[in-house]
Design a protein around this nucleic acid. Structure first.
Ligand code: SF4
Ligand code: SF4
Lengths: 146, 146
DNA sequence: TATAATCAAGACTAGATTAGTCCTATATAC
DNA sequence: GTATATAGGACTAATCTAGTCTTGATTATA
């Protein structure tokens, strides 16, 4: 459907939560409550993020998850691809020859460029950028309510 | 999965086929054979394209489909959205308030920009452009085989 | 060292979507 | 009238989505 799944969506929210206090370990319950994600579902996503190496985990009491790199070195695209797998806007971008028509197809190059531009956006935003923007936006929202 | 479906893919192929000879009516069998799309499946997609108004149909002997507008006034995005429905890279782009977090979410604006850039690409390619490019690409492929 | 907290792994599920097929009815050219 | 096409829709198998739940391993701390 050309749309981000909940896996990706929730994964980004979770990593962004960790980025707001990168050295602290946050557990599922905390992230789930703060980011409004079903706990049992989030557990699976955090495991995937841990397997991908983007976050590290600690089991047992006082355990939880923390980023394994500083927020400024984690891009939005990395988070999405860690939980959803690599992004390919169309099958012909998976690899050359995946679609037998790619050599003669005029649309192939359009998808290549579309994906390149999408990546430009997703690669240019780090978790540091977004966490900072989140603080500003929250302050604005609070201000306009007061 | 953030990927174009076969509906969209086949729809684009079909419209591009019609664009290569815009005044002629091509039937399912012809399009199916030329564009390598399962005939029964293509029939459903052509019906959707007809309902959307992008192509017109004629039933009975010598019937088939033709574009209802000149190729230069049909964009790639129009074709995709005619068969797949409107594109929203994330649910929060459907409408304001669709995601309750959009007012405070720093990622929201990133998706807005990502989608805007995707649309820039898809809106800028007309069926005329692509049909022309297709002829060139086919000639190149033939030349390099010779 | 017992216990409570916490993650890891994976089985399980209902419902939706994807990628089709197939059948009947209707319209049209000749 | 007949052959040819689309229109509409029922049907399907396989996969994906968005979860839930159970069991087992690890860790802090009383
Ligand atoms: S856009 Fe062209 S190359 Fe890509 S999948 Fe479609 S036909 Fe194949
Ligand atoms: S990106 Fe932000 S606004 Fe958009 S769906 Fe996710 S949380 Fe909601």
């Amino acid at each position: 459907m050309l749309q981000l799944t909940k896996d990706g969506e929730y994964g980004v929210r979770a990593v962004l939560h960790l980025a707001s206090d990168p050295m602290r370990f946050s557990d599922i319950k905390e992230i789930s409550a703060a980011q409004d994600v079903p706990g049992n579902y989030l557990a699976k996503i955090m495991q995937q993020l841990a397997r991908s190496g983007l976050v590290r985990s600690r089991r047992g009491a006082k355990g939880g998850y923390a980023l394994s790199r500083p927020p400024r070195r984690i891009t939005l695209r990395e988070v999405i691809e860690a939980v959803e797998g690599p992004i390919f806007l169309n099958v012909c971008l998976i690899r050359k020859g995946e679609c037998p028509r790619d050599a003669i197809c005029p649309v192939h190059d359009v998808w290549r460029e579309a994906q390149r531009r999408l990546f430009e956006v997703l690669d240019s935003r780090t978790m540091e950028d977004l966490a900072g923007e989140g603080v500003k936006k929250a302050a604005r929202a609070k201000g306009s309510r007061a």
